[in-house]
Design a protein around this nucleic acid. Structure first.
Lengths: 221, 221
DNA sequence: AAACATTTGTCCGTATGTATA
DNA sequence: ATATACATACGGACAAATGTT
């Protein structure tokens, strides 16, 4: 078995990275609530580091849209409204759709097999009523497609948007996650379009596969 | 004449912001060359500030994809290849297309008038062979549409991608900017689609309006 | 191989600026 | 309006890590 050579030990993490990951997690899962004021001194003490790496992490979180900084005044967790779901999903749908279009042109049989497998697991998770597992398989499915599209800009933007969706669900939906089998069928259609290298269909179904859940979530609120 | 009350003086700029803007500018216009190593100490001296705001600015530039940081090792200006143009334009085309789709639904007559005016100035700039002016009007045209779409995520992503395109042009094309009148006609079609509230046409033409220039630029190299 | 030089990462004190009394 | 309290922005010193001789 070949051992990946460039597996540079990922355990070492700078204080800045730890702070960034932790704060992002806390904002997404609601530990840090929308609108909550953030004091770098407090956060520094809480994480056992100094204020500098905290501030550096906050810069990035602001850029990602998780916090708002009012220079010289205050820093607070960004507010979130239920209407925000209508802002987050559409660009994600567009970029996922683009990914499907690109991937359709170049995907290999092996990667398609992988998608079929994941989608089967996804179906089973839904049928056996395991919404959390299902959600993970759904993410896996889409990530395979995005990775195949092989575009760093798309990856960066979509992963940020995914995090915002996750936060949205945590804040507004808590435990009740909706899962319908529509998505399984759409995935099958996407796979079929990949076989046929039909970029148009792949893109169209993919967009639907994201806009439909948006409308479902929005109606729930 | 009513004086805008919440006009919080925009002239005040923190050292971090100045550093960020200056460094971004230097990277885009090529003053800081692709692959060039960056020493925060040097940059701090050059800008007459300390290393802290420099480091904060570098965080953001990394996130935007203008530099690469290898923790504990070095920080360098991100390399750029001519193939990168094929990575930058497609997501931008998708998001602009989405913006056209959204804007088509809600744009007012007044905003359409604005687009017509800008497009006329754009045409005149091309006809009188003023490529730089033309480029600005083109950007104005698209920005009006994006602002009407009124989605912060779209705005953030597209503006970053626009900056990468600008950098690409500076690095690879220098002075020779290509301008054809195809774009003017496409803009007219988009305007027409807005009148008719035809989201499909607006989105389709908009995508074309970005993919075509990509191919033109790529062939030039 | 080990000590050095260099650069990055972190800490903390101080200055600047903002809000409140 | 002025003074006071407090949080943020910045600077400079120290610590840790890298690669170099």
């Amino acid at each position: 078995m070949p051992i990946p050579k460039d597996y540079s030990s990922p355990v070492r993490m700078s204080a800045k990275e730890r702070a960034f990951n932790q704060l992002q997690k806390w904002i997404i899962d609601g530990t840090l609530e929308p609108g909550e004021k953030l004091f770098d001194k407090e956060l520094a003490e809480a994480l056992g580091i100094s204020r500098t790496p905290i501030r550096e992490a906050l810069q990035l979180l602001e850029y990602q849209g998780f916090i708002e900084m009012f220079p010289g005044k205050e820093t607070k967790v960004k507010d979130i409204q239920k209407e925000d779901v209508l802002k987050i999903y559409p660009p994600l749908a567009s970029l996922q759709s683009l990914s499907a279009e690109i991937t359709a042109k170049i995907i290999t049989k092996e990667e398609i097999e992988k998608l079929i497998e994941i989608n089967n697991l996804y179906r089973e998770a839904i049928e056996s009523n395991q919404p959390f597992k299902a959600m993970e398989y759904d993410e896996d499915f889409h990530n395979v497609i995005i990775e195949n599209a092989n575009n760093q800009y798309i990856m960066d933007f979509t992963s940020t948007l995914q995090l915002h969706i996750r936060r949205f669900k945590y804040v507004f939906l808590k435990e009740r996650i909706t899962l319908k089998k529509d998505s399984v069928v759409e995935h099958e259609k996407i796979i079929d379009a990949f076989y046929k290298r039909d970029t148009g269909i792949a893109a169209a179904i993919m967009k639907k596969n994201w806009i439909r859940p948006m409308e479902e979530v929005y109606r729930l609120l």
